[in-house]
Computed example of a mutant assay.
Amino acid sequence: MKYVQPRPSSIVAALYTARDLEVDVAVLHGPSGCSFKHARLLEEDGMRVLTTSLAENEFVFGGQSRLEDVLLYAEEKFSPKRMAVMGTCVSMIIGEDLQAAIDNSGVLTETIAVDIHAGFTENIDGVVATLKPAADIGWITHDELSRQQVLLKAANQVERLRGAAVKEYIEPSRGDLKHLVAKRLVELIREGKKGVAVMNAKKETAYMFADSLLALHEIAPNANISYSANLELRGLPKVKRDAERIIRDLDSGGLSYVKQGALDEYGATGDLLGKWIQEDNPDFALLTGVPHAIEQKYTDGIECFSITNGPRQVAPLKDLGHAHVVVEIDLHPKTLGVRSIVESEFGAILRSMA
């Protein structure tokens, strides 16, 4: 399908994957404005992002010597344990040899070359392009590489079938009014209805998506609600560390829940979570993170409250029969660089109704 709406960039996906691999410095080999917003955001998460700032003359004559200089500068300035060189559209078009630049620079830091550009149809190509050299250098095992490739395909399939990639264009929406949705949820609880609350979140977004579960437990600690969170400890180094921190916060909040899936398995847990919901036979379900991973056949007849961070995910969730859909705007920037659960807008509104 040819999309006419903006889609995630494979270069940005490569940058986030480098961060998950605990890369200290990533060097974008291209113009200074390439992936500017995400580069700045990732610096909030502890990874230095530098650029070779290629200009017009280097578009023609090449910028390998410039890349070598920046690598040496990064090693001297930051004393990193790991570095990654990220390709861009410019470096691909002029045929730059990223690995040769690393070898010729003389840097002693373990450094991988990620040959990537933004012209791929799927952003997961950027993830795979980063994981393959990481496996070759020994940062992850080849078994983990294979696991990641399976998970990426599952996540892509969910987006194509029920997510923001289901149509060539989806009208963005802020969703339903949060205070009205919260009011309805509280009404069901006070009526003694049975519910489930499920977090199926992608990586660091769980720092905010988990808050809705905490808020629900705080206002109704004795309600007939079963909780689930995808916090099994598997995945890349940062992903596991994030899960450990969120587990700590949920446990300290007194929340009792089952762990189903890991933070990088959000696209592959649909059947597991769907069957669990069916077995519990609830009247309502609060679904946070990636609600559309769960097929409609598992939620038919259940009043669904879905929380997403994607304005283009509202319409697909409504099409799945979810009665209430709210959007946590700017969730991703708010969860970069954090080390504990962040209060969500929906969580704050729920607490106000205690």
Results as ranks from 00 to 15, higher is better:
Lys193Pro: 02
Leu151Asp: 02
Arg241Thr: 12
Thr288Met: 13
Leu233Lys: 15
Phe209Lys: 02
Asp249Thr: 04
Val186Lys: 02
Thr17Ile: 03
Lys318His: 08
Leu185Ser: 05
Gly253Ser: 08
Gln148Phe: 04
Ala201Glu: 02
Glu232His: 15
Arg147Val: 03
Ser306Asp: 08
Ser10Val: 09
Ala323Met: 13
Thr17Gln: 02
Ala129Cys: 09
Ile140Trp: 03
Ser35His: 12
Met47Asp: 04
Leu98Arg: 00
His29Cys: 01
Pro172Gly: 11
Thr269Lys: 11
Thr299Cys: 05
Leu317Met: 12
Lys77Phe: 15
Gly254Pro: 04
Gly235Asn: 05
Phe284Ile: 09
Ile294Phe: 05
Phe36Met: 13
Ile329Thr: 11
Glu303Thr: 03
Ser65Pro: 10
Pro282Thr: 03
Leu54Cys: 09
Glu187Phe: 06
Ser252Cys: 13
Trp139Cys: 00
Leu145Trp: 02
Leu54Pro: 04
Lys37Val: 15
Ala354Asn: 14
Ser35Ala: 15
Asp136Leu: 12
Gly254Val: 10
Ala13Thr: 05
Ile11Gln: 12
Glu171Phe: 15
Pro6Arg: 10
Asp242Trp: 14
Trp276Arg: 07
Ser65Glu: 11
Asp69Phe: 07
Arg162Ile: 02
Val23Gly: 00
Leu216Val: 15
Val150Phe: 08
Asp45Ser: 06
Ser9Tyr: 03
Leu286Val: 10
Ile170Ser: 06
Ala285Arg: 00
Ser53Tyr: 11
Gln157Phe: 13
Val338Leu: 07
Thr141Ser: 11
Ser212Gly: 12
Lys132Arg: 14
Val114Glu: 04
Glu122Gly: 09
Met1His: 10
Asp20Gln: 10
Leu231Gln: 01
Asn309Lys: 15
Asp176Ser: 14
Tyr207Arg: 01
Leu151Ala: 05
Glu110Cys: 08
Pro237Cys: 10
Ile189His: 00
Val12Thr: 10
Leu331Arg: 09
Ala223Glu: 07
His142Ile: 06
Phe59Ile: 15
Ala182Ile: 02
Leu54Asn: 04
Lys318Tyr: 05
Lys202Asp: 05
Leu185Tyr: 01
Ile246Asn: 00
Thr109Ile: 08
Leu161Gly: 06
Val128Leu: 10
Leu263Thr: 06
Glu122Thr: 08
Gly46Thr: 09
Glu191Ala: 08
Leu317Gln: 07
Ala113Met: 01
Lys178Asp: 09
Asp103Ala: 08
Tyr207Val: 03
His179Met: 12
Gly267Trp: 00
Ser146Met: 15
Leu188Ser: 09
Ala113Leu: 00
Glu204Asn: 13
Tyr227Gln: 08
Ile225Cys: 01
Val60Thr: 15
Leu152Gln: 03
Leu152Asp: 01
Gly270Leu: 03
Glu43Met: 12
Thr308Glu: 12
Pro221Met: 07
Ala135Gly: 06
Lys259Gln: 09
Tyr3Gly: 10
Ser9Gly: 14
Asp264Ile: 09
Arg245Lys: 13
Ala165Phe: 01
Val127Ala: 05
Lys203Phe: 13
Glu279Asn: 09
His117Thr: 14
Pro291Met: 02
Gly87Trp: 00
Ser105Lys: 02
Arg312Met: 15
Pro237Val: 12
Val158His: 00
Val85Trp: 00
Glu168Pro: 05
Asp264Leu: 07
